[in-house]
Design a protein around this nucleic acid. Structure first.
Lengths: 342, 342
DNA sequence: TTGTATGCGTTATCAA
DNA sequence: TTGATAACGCATACAA
């Protein structure tokens, strides 16, 4: 057991409540007593117990965060954005990963409930549809990152997936590409769906009917880079000259496959990713992508959470993605469609 | 306020302790009562409070983890290893980042102390020297990842930095390189020091006196990839034909600089990294590196923590790194020293 | 087998 | 300005 306000009170010859007030800089306390107690507390290495405080206050100053995996290079900055905003407001973040497993995610949610977190921020969930069931009667605010579901009890901040994806494909179209592929992934169903829609919208806007053969998705591969890798062959087979990838990791896998096959990027084949992870500027050649404001996304989610905790009714937020043109995309050269298909 | 055992007790017409026992599958409880209470609890959406439990038990089932940044691609799997082992033992992990800032790290430690975590796992700290001061009198076990300090109160599990670095350089030597550079970083002083020593040891073992000019470190750049990028010019200037980098991120920065300069890797210049992050297999060309068992490192740290919590006296652990030869290293071709220097 | 009482560390209400 | 007391939710020692 560590030293408590009782120990200090005893040593100081005052009551525990006096100690409590002195330590909290409570107004109703004598300046002399306050100083004396504070010094004594320091001497005795007193460390206040958040546990006890939480029980009494019915508040834990903790925001739970559930996400699929920390290894995803997209996540780090988002988490740090959440943490930054949390710290500034006197909160801390309790992170739990689902590892893309529904049971684990359920366990994570239950854990956070038991720990009485004040709010929950969710990203890359595998069971959004179950959230109302879990949180329907609880008053714990929920903020979701990168989803746009219209549930009443759930609020969100998201990148504008559809339009961002659209602008990625428009960039490819503007470079003369017509056979444009999409590499999707299955373990982020919602985001994948939005980005696919943006892809289709962009195509249809210029009168190109989306060709299912150009849409690659693997239901057997979980690893994003490997999905990108596996997509090259089939995409080439149906004449793609450019590809929009679900994210940068996928794009890097695809880029790597091109390298191994001796297919020159961007001369013969254009690739555009999504996220703008740290590595994107260092691939060879540097990756053209859609930048998500990752840190800001996290910050905004936390700010929205704080507003909810303050009883406010914040607006859901949709922030734009930004096209970052680097060197994996280029103008389609005449004859390249065939060269690529060969 | 959520529903408590008192609410259930009232509704069931029994005492709170009976409810407590029923819910805990305590031996001293009637099977009928147990079942009835458990069903009632479910109906009432009862969620036990870890906060209250923690206060009563003087135990939080929480391991605090302090690290520099989650964005470092090295960290993700380590954290997940810790989390995995923690979950299996009924614990959860409370992560806090220092963002390479000493004040932030101190704040993180204090936060964890206030929250009464049962143990602390540290990685990439900026103030190891202060840990005894913070934790000297506290009984909270500390496990450090990737440090090898001989403090009594602190235990560690680490990759064998020195020997792993040595084998990296030996690989370069075996390929005929003699002018081998080292790219170090400053915000992981300890690891950097160990790896640098391994580098020097390997050189000296074959009778090469380490040349300070071949050791690149930037005190102004924090970003690892940028350090690697900035190192190319000076390293080339002093005739390096191969470089051992502090980590893969650094190596990727260097690789990118080579690409921009038109310097062919590995034909004209060899690069070896450290960590084997997920991206390492997908760089162009794929990166030769030293593999750290990241997930395992995390798992081991947590297992050591569990042993400490069980009152045992576990041995510190040093696990080997493993050379992974991919394609950024090659035999030194005659004449290349000059070509590289030019 | 079940109930009663107490403690865990803190804050807040009320009284002095 | 300070002190006594209750409350937060749970587990447990002890009593019935």
């Amino acid at each position: 057991m560590s030293v408590s306000i009782y120990d200090i009170a005893k040593k100081a010859g005052v009551s525990p409540s006096t100690v409590s007030r002195a330590l909290e800089d409570h107004p109703r306390i004598g300046a002399t007593t306050r100083k004396r107690i504070q010094e004594l507390a320091r001497e005795m290495d007193y460390v206040p117990s958040t546990v006890a405080k939480s029980l009494a206050a019915n508040k834990t100053w903790t925001i739970g965060m559930v996400l699929a995996t920390i290894s995803d290079p997209f996540m780090g900055r988002v988490i740090e954005g959440v943490e930054q905003a949390a710290i500034e407001a006197g909160f801390n973040v309790f992170i739990s990963t689902s590892q893309n497993d529904r049971q684990r995610e359920i366990a994570a949610i239950k854990m956070l409930q038991k720990r009485r977190v004040d709010g929950i921020i969710v990203i890359a969930s595998h069971l959004f549809d179950q959230y109302p069931r879990f949180f329907g009667h609880s008053k714990v605010p929920i903020v979701i990152i990168n989803e746009q579901e219209p549930w009443e009890t759930m609020h969100f901040v998201t990148v504008d997936d559809v339009h961002a994806a659209q602008s990625a494909v428009e960039h490819l179209l503007a470079s003369g590409h017509r056979r444009i592929g999409y590499v999707g992934i299955t373990n982020r169903p919602k985001s994948n769906q939005y980005r696919l829609r943006g892809y289709q919208d962009a195509l249809e806007a210029v009168g190109i009917a989306p060709d299912p053969a150009l849409i690659f998705t693997s239901h057997t591969i979980e690893d994003h880079a490997k999905v990108g890798e596996a997509s090259l062959k089939p995409l080439l087979a149906c004449g793609a000259t450019a590809v929009f990838c679900f994210n940068d990791t996928t794009a890097i896998g695809l880029l790597s496959a091109c390298y191994k096959r001796g297919l020159s990027v961007p001369d013969k084949f254009s690739i555009i990713g999504f996220d703008d992870i740290d590595m994107a500027a260092y691939t060879i050649p540097p990756l053209t992508t859609i930048r998500q404001p990752r840190f800001e996304l996290g910050q905004r989610a936390m700010h929205m959470m704080l507003a909810l905790l303050a009883g406010q009714k914040p607006e859901n937020q949709i922030v734009p993605g930004e096209l970052v043109v680097r060197q994996t995309t280029a103008r389609l050269l005449p004859g390249n469609n065939r060269a690529a298909a060969g």
